[in-house]
Design a protein around this nucleic acid. Structure first.
Length: 551
RNA sequence: UGGAGUGUCGUUCAAUGGCAGGACGCCUGACUUUGGAUCAGGCUAUGAGGGUUCGAAUCCUUCCACUCCAACCA
C-alpha cells in the first residue's frame, strides 16, 4: 500500500473548511429515512456517508424517522430499518422521529402566520396546481392569499381541531407565485389527513409536509450538515427561507448523487411493485437490492461498507457496475469463507479399479490460509461429480473429464475416464474411470501432471440439499431508462432452484450465519429457512470464471 | 422552451494553473491440487469550438449533451 494521502471528497472539504474556520466545534449529521419501505443499497451509501463523516470528524449522527405521512408509514418498517443499520455496523447517537416535533412544528406554523408569511387556502388541489403555473409560465395568486392574520390563525386552529375534511383546506407559505423555482410558489406546508399515525395515533389530523418538517427537524436537533441527494437541490432555497423566517438554528443542506447500480432498480416505488406484484418473494428476496435481500443472499456488512467506500461520493449522476459490488464481496469472503465441496448437478462416477465397499478418509484444507485448519472427507468407488465437468467430445483447451482424459479429484486421486453409460434416451447416466493408486493427494509418486482438478462427493455420505442460484434481476443495465414498463425487462432466469444437489456431510453442522465457498462453484450462504431436515443454500456470488467466457 | 445541477478511460473516483492517476472491468504472462486466489505486465479518457497563459481538465467565452423541478409524497 502506498502512503499517499487519499484525496478528500467534496463533503469532507466542506467540513474541514467549516471546522478550520471555527464555524462549528464539531459536526452533527443525521440519517433520515421515511418508514415506508425497506432500506436498499442506495440507503447504505447514504448511511455510510452520514455516519462515516461524523465518525471521521469526531461528530454525531442521529437516526431520524421522517414520519410525516401517516398513510404510508408503519412500525414494521421502523424495525427493519433499525435492524439494517445495526447490521451494517453503525450506531446512532440518538433516535428521533419527525413526529416528536409535531407540537413545535405547529407553533412554527403559527409563528409564520403571525408574520404574515402563511395563509389558509380553501382551493382544491386541482385549482392550486392550475394556479401554480409551469416551469416556463409564472403562477397566479390564489384568491385566499390575502386573508387576515386573525382569520388564518382561526382557520388553522380549526383545521387542527378537526373541523374540516381531508383536502378542504391547506396551509401555504406566502412567498412568490412567480418565482422561477416552483417550490417557492407558495408551497403547501400543512395538510389535513384524518389518519392514524404509527406513533401519535389520532392526536393529529393535520400533518406538516416534508419541506416544513425536514429542515425544522434538522434545526431542532442542531444538525450542522444535512446531507441528502441531488433531487433535493431545488428544496434548498425553501429550506433556507424557512429557517431564516423562523429564526431557528441554521442547519445547512448539501447534496450528493444517489447510487444507481446496473441490472437493478432503486426507487422505493418500483421495489414495492416488485414485492406487491409477486415478481420477488418479498423485501428480503435475495434478488432485491435491499439490505435485507443482500443479507439473506449472503453478503457481509464489511463488503457493503467497502463498496460504499470504493464508489465514493460526488455530485454527478452515476451507474455503478454490479461487478464492483461482487468484487467487494469476493474480496471479503475469499479470505474468510470455509472451502467445502458441493455437487450442484450430479452425475455418478464409478472407479472400476477401486475396491467395492472400501472407504477411505482423506484430509482436505478448510481454506487457503493454514490457520483455517483441515478436515476429513470420505472416498469410495462411487462418487458424485458435476455433470458439466464431463464432455463426451471435448472442446479445445478442455482440462476436465472426457473419454481417455485424466483429471485430479480434489484432495484425492488422479482418475482416467475409460467409458460412460447412457440410458435409452441418450442421456448420460454414469462415467467409468480408473484411478492411479500412487497419485494420492499429498503423497503423489505417480509423476503424472494433470491440468484439471474437479470437486466431488462420496455418494455414500453426500447430503441432499436445495441450491438456489440467483442471477441479476433485470436483463438490461438500466431498466429505468428503457422504453415502456421496467418490469418488461425482468430476467426470467433470475432464480434457478436446484433440488437434486448434494453437499458434504459437514454442512449438516453449518451455522446459519456461516459463509462458504463451494469449491469451483461460488460463495454460498444458508437460507434463513434452511434446517438440518432440509438444507437450503443461496448462491451469494459466482467465482470469477475465465473459462465460460472463452466458450 | 424558465430555473437549477452535471460533463475526465467501458464504469467509477482523483488531479484545486505545472508529467491526466487509482479502483473495477478487459487483455497478456507466471504460478497454482479451485479455469478461483496470488504475482508481474498491458489497454482505453478531459463533450465541442474560441480565448487568457510560458503552461489549461482546471480560468474566461460560445455552443452541445444529460439530470432534476409543474405530489395535499419524501
Amino acid at each position: 500500500m502506498s502512503s499517499e494521502e487519499k484525496s478528500l471528497n467534496f463533503l469532507e472539504e466542506i467540513i474541514e473548511n467549516d471546522l478550520a474556520a471555527g464555524k462549528y466545534q464539531s459536526i452533527h449529521t443525521r440519517f433520515p429515512p421515511e418508514p415506508n419501505g425497506y432500506l436498499h443499497i442506495g440507503h447504505a451509501k447514504s448511511i455510510y456517508v452520514n455516519f462515516g463523516l461524523a465518525k471521521k470528524y469526531g461528530g454525531k449522527t442521529n437516526l431520524r424517522f421522517d414520519d410525516t405521512n401517516p398513510v404510508t408509514e408503519d412500525t414494521e418498517y421502523v424495525h427493519s430499518i433499525k435492524e439494517d443499520i445495526k447490521w451494517l455496523g453503525f450506531e446512532w447517537t440518538a433516535e428521533f422521529y419527525a413526529s416528536d416535533y409535531f407540537d413545535t412544528l405547529y407553533e412554527y406554523a403559527v409563528k409564520l402566520i403571525n408574520k404574515g408569511l402563511a395563509y389558509i387556502d380553501d382551493s382544491s388541489s386541482e385549482e392550486i396546481a392550475r394556479l401554480k403555473g409551469t416551469p416556463t409560465e409564472p403562477g397566479k395568486d390564489s384568491t385566499f392569499r390575502h386573508r387576515s392574520i386573525e382569520e388564518n390563525l382561526r382557520l388553522f386552529s380549526e383545521m387542527k381541531e378537526g373541523k374540516y375534511k381531508d383536502g378542504e383546506k391547506v396551509l401555504r407559505a406566502k412567498i412568490d407565485m412567480v418565482h422561477t423555482n416552483m417550490l417557492m410558489r407558495d408551497p403547501i406546508i400543512y395538510r389535513i389527513k384524518h389518519a392514524h399515525h404509527h406513533r401519535t395515533g389520532d392526536k393529529w389530523c393535520i400533518y406538516p409536509m416534508y419541506d416544513f418538517a425536514h429542515g425544522q427537524s434538522d434545526s431542532i436537533e442542531k444538525i450542522t450538515h444535512s446531507i441528502c441527494t441531488l433531487e433535493f437541490i431545488p428544496h434548498r432555497e425553501l429550506y433556507e427561507w424557512l429557517i431564516q423566517q423562523l429564526d431557528i438554528f441554521p442547519s445547512h443542506q448539501y447534496e450528493f448523487a444517489r447510487l444507481n447500480m446496473t441490472y437493478t432498480v432503486m426507487s422505493k416505488r418500483k421495489l414495492l411493485q416488485l414485492v406487491n406484484e409477486g415478481h420477488v418473494a418479498g423485501w428480503d428476496d435475495p434478488r432485491m437490492p435491499t439490505i435485507s435481500g443482500f443479507r439473506r443472499k449472503g453478503y457481509t456488512p464489511a463488503s457493503i461498507r467497502n463498496f460504499c467506500e470504493k464508489i465514493g461520493v460526488a455530485r454527478r449522476e452515476n451507474l455503478i457496475d454490479l461487478s464492483l459490488l461482487e468484487f467487494c464481496l469476493r474480496e471479503d469472503l475469499n479470505h474468510t469463507a470455509k472451502r467445502v465441496m458441493a455437487v450442484l448437478d450430479p452425475i455418478k462416477l464409478v472407479i472400476t479399479n477401486y475396491p467395492e465397499g472400501k472407504t477411505e478418509e482423506l484430509k482436505t484444507e478448510n481454506g487457503p490460509d493454514e490457520s483455517m485448519g483441515h478436515r476429513h472427507i470420505s472416498f469410495s468407488n462411487t462418487l458424485w461429480i458435476e455433470r458439466e465437468d464431463f464432455m463426451e467430445v471435448p472442446a479445445k483447451k478442455w482440462f476436465r473429464l472426457a473419454p481417455g482424459a485424466m483429471v485430479r479429484l480434489k484432495s484425492a486421486y488422479i482418475v482416467k475416464c475409460e467409458s460412460f453409460v447412457k440410458d435409452n434416451n441418450g442421456n448420460l447416466t454414469e462415467i467409468h474411470c480408473t484411478y492411479i493408486p500412487e497419485s494420492k493427494s499429498g503423497q503423489d509418486t505417480s509423476g503424472i501432471q494433470v491440468k484439471g482438478t474437479i470437486h466431488w462427493l462420496n455418494a455414500a455420505d453426500a447430503v441432499p440439499a436445495e441450491i438456489r442460484l440467483y442471477d441479476r434481476l433485470f436483463k438490461v443495465e438500466n431498466p429505468s431508462s428503457e422504453e415502456g414498463d421496467f418490469k418488461e425487462y425482468i430476467n426470467p432466469d433470475s432464480l434457478v432452484v436446484l433440488s437434486n444437489s448434494f453437499v458434504e456431510p459437514s454442512l449438516l453442522d453449518a451455522l446459519n450465519n456461516e459463509h462458504f465457498q463451494f469449491i469451483r462453484k461460488g460463495y454460498f450462504f444458508p437460507d434463513k429457512t434452511s434446517s438440518k431436515d432440509k438444507l437450503i443454500f443461496n448462491r451469494t456470488a459466482t467465482l470469477k470464471d475465465t473459462w465460460v467466457k472463452k466458450v
